[in-house]
Nucleic acid binder design. Sequence first.
RNA 1: GGAGGAGUCGCAUAGUGGCUAUUGCAACGGUCUUGAAAACCGUAAUCCCUUACGGGAUUCGUGAGUUCGAGUCUCACCUCCUCCGCCA
Length: 415
Amino acid sequence: MLDINFIRENAEAVKNACKNKNVDINIDEVLELDKNKRAIMTEMELLRAEQNKISRGGKDNTAIFAQAKEIKEKIKEMEPELEKVDSQLKIMLLQLPNIPFEDVPVGKDDSQNVVLRKVGRPATQMFHTPKDYMELGAALDLIDVERAGKVSGSRFGYIKRQLPVLEFALVKLVMDTAQKEGFIPVIPPVMLKDQMARGTGYFEATDEKEAYYLAEDKMYLVGTSEQSIVSMHSDEVLNEKDLPIRYVGFSTCFRREAGSYGKDTKGILRVHQFDKLEMVIFSTPDQSKDEHKLLLSIEEKLMKALDLPYQVINICTGDLGRPAAAKYDIEAWLPSEKRYRETHSTSNCTDFQARRLNIRYKDKAGKVGFVHTLNGTAFAIGRILIMIMENYQQKDGSIKVPKALRKYCGFKVIK
RNA sequence: GGAGGAGUCGCAUAGUGGCUAUUGCAACGGUCUUGAAAACCGUAAUCCCUUACGGGAUUCGUGAGUUCGAGUCUCACCUCCUCCGCCA
């Protein structure tokens, strides 16, 4: 959510942000509603002040109380009008996107994202024609999507044998790496009250089909632990001297993948349920750009530890999503598709989520302001397993284990 | 799932329909001090009107209601605690 004062004073900047983010909202209408709302409010407050004055006068004054009652009726008549304007305004405000930073490339969609750098050598000239991970997994009995289909339907999988052990090795690698940087490990709830699910700003009434909803209990399943970790400090005032607060969370994530019919239908690249290690940072506004760099640097450190070839993408305005002011993706090389596929994403959401969730901090002078929130993938387990399998496959169909994981999993090769 | 209790500023705490919601501690700022401690003084948030000085509205878990007036009364919901049941 944006500050209404900011919108009043920077209408052009907001219009421009909407245009660059492909969001179609009439800012002039927002300003008009805001103006209307304030006019009604002012009038009501004047009446209420008068009413209070009378009520504070004393007891048993029936003549004057009759007058107060009259004012009360008048106020009551105005209420629906205010509510109407206010709810219209609120709906529009919640749909407004965060303003992208000035150095974010302007672009229409993901085709205009910018490659910042490539690291590691894509194994295009591998010694043999690479097998895809499903073929490798079938031979070694590591992934079973057929039985998962029988039991749960499409876009599910059983991860078997050495793969779960590798998952725990990845978890340990991330925990060790992140704790060195002061991240606090956390396992968050994966079910959220609807108001919290909205707080992080990924869906509104129009597109909540993206999340799983438990109607009986009025709860959502998280699509990412970012939702429950960012919400953790809602309605709190943090102390500046405690900032930045860094968390590294592990949780299962649930996604309906509505609207992605036909995309990545095979295998476990795009599934309804997967485990993910996620980093979340609460910082002061001054710190957030550096913290964003830190998140990206840890993601790259983890990728280098696994020695996977990757590229870093600067996401353009049209592909940023509503809450982010800046976002970098990491894409790893997938040999079977001969292209890079997304494994990581890190966003600086500035005060956009903090304003919705009312997460504030008090500075040394005692002044209160909204924190900045940032998030970044440490590892999305399923996708990283895929990348390891394909990039570390051997001629005989076995899979080597990245050196950094060996001490955690206890074996060097899957065969 | 059943029965009972509670929610007031960061923490603790008073407040059974009336005017400006009490008190203590902590934290922060100031005075004093060579420095510190002590002492003393000050400090809630959100919103609206105003160029400003200033004024006003709202907020006692949340939302409705009763009333001229609600922390206080009524209803619903949320959260926590205790006991019973179930359970890894």
